[in-house]
Write a protein that binds this DNA or RNA. Structure first.
Length: 278
DNA sequence: ACCCAGGAAATTC
DNA sequence: GAATTTCATGGG
């Protein structure tokens, strides 16, 4: 991966397997906005970023080299060879090959672990537009203001100091008590997400579901999108339908060490082709 | 009015 | 233990 510093921008040259719309609007993150024609703006790790693809290059605007190396390079998983992984996955099953070729520009983001955990607690029994609204109100109400319209994701410590009524303006419904329980466990160190990052996948799952409101599915999403555990395999309603109808008899482990990447290809492909399940 | 939404907890059988 | 109900809220 080669990059250059041009003015205040960082340019990653000859990027492959990267489509911003596919990556940022496929249901793994909830905070990126498309400005126009593939140009996106969003916040992660307390930094606002505006980026787009120009020709064969990925351009990160008003971005320091330090932020690129420390935050955005891992965030966008720029060191991983997705072409190679897609080729391996394609041999597993022909429909997986088709799903991967449908959106080959998806990458698994490395989001802030706490943001991923909290966001997927909010996602339960909910739809994506409303999930985005709740998270947006959570950030503007309790995050740190970074610019006129952008806020950091509020820390577990800040949310741990609140009660259920304090969260009523974000209209998260029954999930408010789960958010606060999770915030308290993370802020107190009772749950240590960085330790979970290095645990065996089974121990990590067991630890995460100690949090009220975190079951198997939210735990898998936290592992995959927040802790970059690429073998995690979230099974939501879409994935259960897909497994039953498109991959009968197969289990998550059949997809190997990059099962999580297979999962997001299948999830996105299924969501974009609902007629497959009528 | 009714149904569903990237589920999980509480209750019932 | 497995199956069912309930949980807020908003949109279709």
């Amino acid at each position: 991966m080669k990059y250059l510093l041009t003015g205040n921008d960082v340019t990653v040259e000859n990027i492959t397997d990267m489509d911003l719309k596919q990556t940022l609007d496929c249901g793994q993150s909830f905070r990126w906005q498309e400005l126009d024609e593939g140009s996106f703006i969003g916040v992660a790790f307390g930094k606002v970023l505006h980026l787009n693809i120009e020709g064969n290059n990925l351009v990160l605007h008003d971005c320091s080299e330090q932020d690129f190396l420390n935050i955005w390079k891992p965030y966008f998983d720029l060191e991983l060879d997705y072409t190679n992984i897609r080729n391996e996955l394609s041999n597993i099953h022909p429909i997986l090959n088709e799903a991967a070729l449908y959106a080959p520009g998806i990458r698994i983001l490395s989001q802030e672990p706490w943001e991923a955990l909290c966001s997927f607690i909010i996602s339960q029994n909910n739809n994506i537009p409303r999930i985005k609204g709740i998270i947006s109100r959570l950030c503007s109400s309790f995050g740190t203001q970074l610019s006129e319209n952008f806020f950091s994701f509020p820390s577990a410590k800040v949310l741990a100091s609140l009660n259920e009524d304090d969260l009523s303006p974000i209209r998260s419904g029954f999930r408010a008590k789960y958010i606060i329980d999770a915030a308290k466990k993370v802020a107190s160190g009772d749950i240590n997400l960085e330790e979970i990052r290095n645990m065996s996948i089974d121990d990590a799952r067991e630890e995460l579901i100690k949090i009220k409101g975190v079951g198997a599915k939210v735990a898998e999403c936290t592992l995959l999108y927040g802790l970059h555990r690429l073998d995690a395999f979230p099974l939501d309603v879409w994935m259960k339908r897909a497994m039953h109808n498109l991959f009968p008899g197969m289990t998550p482990t059949d997809f190997g060490k990059y099962a999580g990447i297979a999962q997001i290809y299948i999830f996105h492909y299924s969501r974009m082709h609902p007629e497959l399940f009528e």
